[in-house]
Design a protein around this nucleic acid. Structure first.
Length: 272
DNA sequence: CTTCGATCCTGAAGGC
DNA sequence: TGCCTTCAGGATCGAA
């Protein structure tokens, strides 16, 4: 479930449930994620209280008192839910129990995600955070920024948009959706894009992500969200997952191709 | 530096 | 029903 809108929807759903609650206990059942979980570091947060729940790129950052943060990345199949106490689900690798009696549960069948603790003073220098690009809904993201960052690059615009060192949070679903809305072909080389197209791409990125956040994210073949609720944006997907179906604008069948090993959807008529 | 392909891992879905 | 293949929302690493 993890592109920017899903993580942001998750953050919103968790903030009221976690802030002010104190960690009473942590259970790590399987430490083998993309990087091994440091059990002792997680244990070190027992007794600490949640001060804020934030998001940077696709990382969820749970700020604790004592100057440390719990960082969670969901990878491809990670889920994080706040739920009443109860038996662990399949692939529930970490469970936090709070003073309120509620639990926070991290599930991740494929184990591509991350769970770790980092000091607040050092987080900007952490390798996961140091080279992240701008937030797409922030002030620094616009056509001029994209044009500048594209200088000297030659690859297709879809890969450029998904490069987290350029702009964060756009993954495989939203890259196709953004480029459809911007009427730009995902194969187009960044060097051939002028100010007008960059403007459409910047506008479409903001619009698609903001709308997806409002809808609670996109849920494909499982649920999302800290309340176990389902995202609604999948009903608004214009091209993703619609290979062969008519384009919502012109009726031409949507084409599914593979770029860099990832499914890519586009209308060959609307997008140039 | 960029870009490309392979890779990590498990489960769901589709074809036969 | 069972078996096999393909695909999946991410990110990193080595090679060119």
């Amino acid at each position: 479930m993890p592109e920017l809108p899903e993580v942001e929807a998750l953050r919103e759903s968790l903030v009221d449930r976690l802030v002010g609650d104190r960690v009473r206990r942590v259970v790590v059942r399987d430490h083998r994620l993309r990087r091994p979980i440091d059990r002792r570091a997680l244990d070190g947060l027992v007794g600490a209280t949640v001060r804020a729940v934030e998001r940077r790129a696709k990382y969820l950052r749970i700020r604790m008192d004592g100057g440390r943060s719990l960082v969670v990345h969901l990878g491809m199949s990670g889920r994080l839910v706040s739920a009443p106490a109860g038996p662990p689900a399949l692939h529930e690798h970490v469970t936090w129990t709070f003073a309120s009696g509620r639990t926070l549960r991290y599930r991740d069948p494929r184990r591509f995600g991350l769970v770790y603790v980092v000091g607040d003073a050092a987080i900007d220098r952490h390798p996961d955070f140091a080279s992240l690009g701008v937030e797409p809904l922030g002030r620094d993201f616009d056509a001029a920024y994209l044009r500048e960052r594209a200088a000297g690059r030659r690859g297709p615009v879809k890969a450029f948009l998904m490069d987290q060192r350029v702009v964060v949070g756009v993954g495989n679903i939203y890259a196709s959706e953004v480029l459809f809305r911007a009427r730009v072909s995902p194969r187009r080389r960044v060097g051939t894009i002028g100010p007008e197209r960059w403007g459409r791409i910047a506008d479409a990125t903001r619009a698609v992500l903001a709308r997806a956040i409002d809808a609670g994210g996109t849920t494909i073949r499982d649920y999302v969200g800290g309340r176990g609720t389902t995202g609604r944006f999948q009903a608004e997907l214009a091209v993703y997952g619609r290979g062969g179906e008519p384009c919502v604008v012109c009726g031409t069948p949507v084409r599914r191709t593979v770029m860099a090993g990832r499914a890519t959807y586009a209308c060959g008529r609307c997008q140039r």
